[in-house]
C-alpha cells in the first residue's frame, strides 16, 4: 500500500465522450471512458478497428478535442486548451511514435531524431549530439546518416522511437507502433519499448489491435464500442498489484 501512495498519476481520464455526427445519426466513438495512468507505467489500449482506441489516444495527445469529459496530463486539464497551448504541451512533455513511422523523407536518421529539439530552439550542435546518443540507445549508431528510404521498417521505427525519446518526455504515446512490421521485428521493437519503461522510467501508452502484443504491458485496457470492457493488471510485469473494477 505504501508504494501505491507514492505513485503519481500522469494521465487522468474522466468520463470521456466523443460523439461524431454522421448525417442524422450520432456515433459514439467514446462513450464514458475513465481510467488513470501512473508514472512509469506501460499501458496498452487494446481494441478492434473502430472500437475508439485511436480516438482515445488522439485525445490524450491533444490532437482532437473531446465532446465531453476531462483529461488531465500531469495534473493539467487539457480539454479546454487552445491549439498552440497543446502544441507547447506536447513539445515539453510528450513523445509520439507512429504506426507508419512518419519520418521526414528529406532528412537522415540523425536529423529526424533532432527535429523535436529544433522545435524547442536547441542549437544544432547540441541537438545533433543528443540525437546521436538516442540513436545509440535504439542501436542505430551505424545508420545515423541514412535517409528513411535506405532503412528497413524496423530501423525506421527505431529512429521514430529515438525521436520520441530525444526530448526526454514524461509520457510517450505509441499508435500501433508495430502495425507495419513483421513478427520478428515486432518483438524486437516491443522489447525495446519495455526496456525503456523499465530502465528509463518512462510512462508509455500504446494502442494496438493485437491482444498478444498487449502482454508486454503492465496494464491492459480493453475497449469495445467506445467503452472500457476490462482493465487487466499483468502480475508478471508489475510487482505491486492493484485490482481495478469496471
Amino acid at each position: 500500500m505504501e508504494k501505491q501512495l507514492e505513485k503519481k498519476v500522469v494521465i487522468d481520464v474522466e468520463d470521456l465522450y466523443k460523439i461524431y455526427r454522421v448525417g442524422e445519426e450520432k456515433v459514439r466513438a467514446l462513450d464514458g471512458v475513465s481510467f488513470k495512468v501512473f508514472e512509469g507505467e506501460f499501458v496498452a489500449i487494446v481494441g478492434t478497428s473502430g472500437s475508439g482506441k485511436s480516438t482515445l489516444l488522439n485525445m490524450m495527445a491533444g490532437l482532437e478535442p473531446p465532446t465531453k469529459g476531462h483529461i488531465s496530463i500531469s495534473g493539467k486539464n487539457i480539454e479546454k486548451l487552445k491549439e498552440n497551448q497543446l502544441v507547447s504541451l506536447r513539445r515539453k512533455r510528450v513523445g509520439f511514435i507512429f504506426q507508419s513511422f512518419n519520418l521526414i523523407g528529406s532528412m537522415n536518421a540523425e536529423e529526424n531524431v533532432a527535429l523535436p529539439l529544433m522545435f524547442r530552439g536547441v542549437s544544432k550542435e547540441t541537438r545533433i549530439k543528443k540525437a546521436r546518443e538516442m540513436l545509440e540507445v535504439v542501436g542505430l549508431s551505424k545508420h545515423r546518416k541514412h535517409i528513411p528510404t535506405q532503412m528497413s521498417g524496423g530501423q525506421q521505427q527505431r529512429v521514430g522511437i529515438a525521436r520520441a525519446l530525444v526530448v526526454n518526455p514524461s509520457i510517450i504515446f505509441a499508435d500501433e507502433p508495430t502495425g507495419n512490421l513483421d513478427s520478428v521485428t515486432t518483438s524486437e521493437i516491443l522489447d525495446l519499448l519495455r526496456e525503456l519503461v523499465n530502465e528509463q522510467g518512462k510512462t508509455l501508452v500504446m494502442v494496438t489491435h493485437d491482444k498478444e502484443l498487449a502482454d508486454v504491458a503492465d496494464k491492459v485496457i480493453h475497449i469495445k464500442d467506445g467503452k472500457i470492457t476490462k482493465i487487466e493488471i499483468k502480475k508478471e510485469n508489475i510487482e505491486n498489484e492493484k485490482i481495478e473494477e469496471v
Binding site: E83, N84, K92, I104
Partner: peptide
C-alpha cells in the same frame, strides 16, 4: 500536409 501534421504532433509551434 502529412509533414505539417507530423511537425504539429512533435510539438512544432504553429507560428513556426
Amino acid at each position: 500536409r502529412k509533414e505539417i501534421g507530423i511537425m504539429k504532433v512533435l510539438g512544432c509551434d504553429i507560428s513556426d
